[in-house]
Design a protein around this nucleic acid. Sequence first.
DNA 1: GGCTTGTTTATTGTTGACAGTTTAGGGGCG
DNA 2: CGCCCCTAAACTGTCAACAATAAACAAGCC
Lengths: 230, 230
Amino acid sequence: MSELQPRAAPAPLPLAARSLPMVLRTEIEKLILRGELPTGERLNENFLAERFKVSRGPVREAFRALVEAGLLEFVPNRGVFVRQISLAEAIATYEVRAGVFAHAGRLAAARVQDGEIHRLRSFVEHMDECISRKDGAGYYALNLQLHDQILFATRNSRLITTYMGLIKELHRFRAKNIDRPEHLRVSNAEHAEMVEAIAARDELRAYEAHYRHVMNAKGRVLEVFGKRDA
Amino acid sequence: MSELQPRAAPAPLPLAARSLPMVLRTEIEKLILRGELPTGERLNENFLAERFKVSRGPVREAFRALVEAGLLEFVPNRGVFVRQISLAEAIATYEVRAGVFAHAGRLAAARVQDGEIHRLRSFVEHMDECISRKDGAGYYALNLQLHDQILFATRNSRLITTYMGLIKELHRFRAKNIDRPEHLRVSNAEHAEMVEAIAARDELRAYEAHYRHVMNAKGRVLEVFGKRDA
DNA sequence: GGCTTGTTTATTGTTGACAGTTTAGGGGCG
DNA sequence: CGCCCCTAAACTGTCAACAATAAACAAGCC
């Protein structure tokens, strides 16, 4: 099979590989993550093609990528649907996320640089302030940044993409408990322990702290969505 | 946007959702994993379309899915290439795999059923026998089964798909050290520790045993590929 | 001779059309 | 009134043709 293309070279990889299907993939992903495409909704190829002023081909290609990413569900001869993740699936995904994030904590503890520790601690402090002035949105934004900073400290981009992929699948269950101050206090206490474990460069302690943080988050989600969904 | 399709129902999801692009996706994946499509090779749409007796459309859709899965690389206006994973990327992926697999070990220790423990132990025994009679292929097959069995014991299908996805990316670096008996002895000793930790239902011990197993495997790969690649 | 430039060829990017399937609606019948 | 079947519309699945881009090659210039 390879004899047909004996020529060489993989490619320079512009890293920002843009093309119509790729752009569509990103745009549709945004729509899903922002909740503009409700969970369970069927996506009409013609409609999206018209909206983006393209033909159906590129739209279908974008669909295939998002199915692989776990954001869409594919049903033969019926089309694709915004994936309706069940509570059971969400729990399973939270568990995987816990394992990955705990591992991130461990690697961060091993590889964090001195300057980063200060940043991590200041995030926790600012989040405490947000709680005091009941600024849920501010807390949420800082929370994302803190997690990003921890992931960055691992110096492992593959770990980051894996984690981000899991997060995207869980979008429906995220940020629903902004309005629960008691949760935020607990959550930020966990952050403090995570950061201090990293600062102490104690790998196993960081692992456990991060692990429990996500598992507790899972528990909080279960409280909120508990009886409603399956 | 959602008002255009107010109608209901996500779908039953046949789980074996077959369609031309999906079949192609699977077939091309097999070709890659079996090494019939060399790493770095450029995939010609016309050629594959002709080979599978279909048009280019479904082939392109299959490509997009495999790009998302990390098996193909996409370069605008040039096509897709079998992803040439660098040693640095492989190391990063091995680290993620270690975190995920260690987590699997932890969950397995928490959830393994009595009957499964016997199966796990017998795998290790049979692999020891394979080493004695220098049956590398047999060892390799049993090795896969043991890992599958551990993953199954987690009762978390999302964890399994995540792990499998990582494994596929590493196909180029796997099973290259079959012919190194000294590695097999070490490796199977690690297996024994993993299984005993699970049998003892000691979560943290299982976590560490699985973690070290993959990290050591990473080290062995580095020995083999060390200076050659970047 | 080596480098640049123009031309040809191969391959990807995109589109519109057609076939097959599913869904929705409207009688007809129990 | 409710159920079933039949028909029509809508949508997905697939394909083949056309446009655009990039690689390969040849000729010309320094």
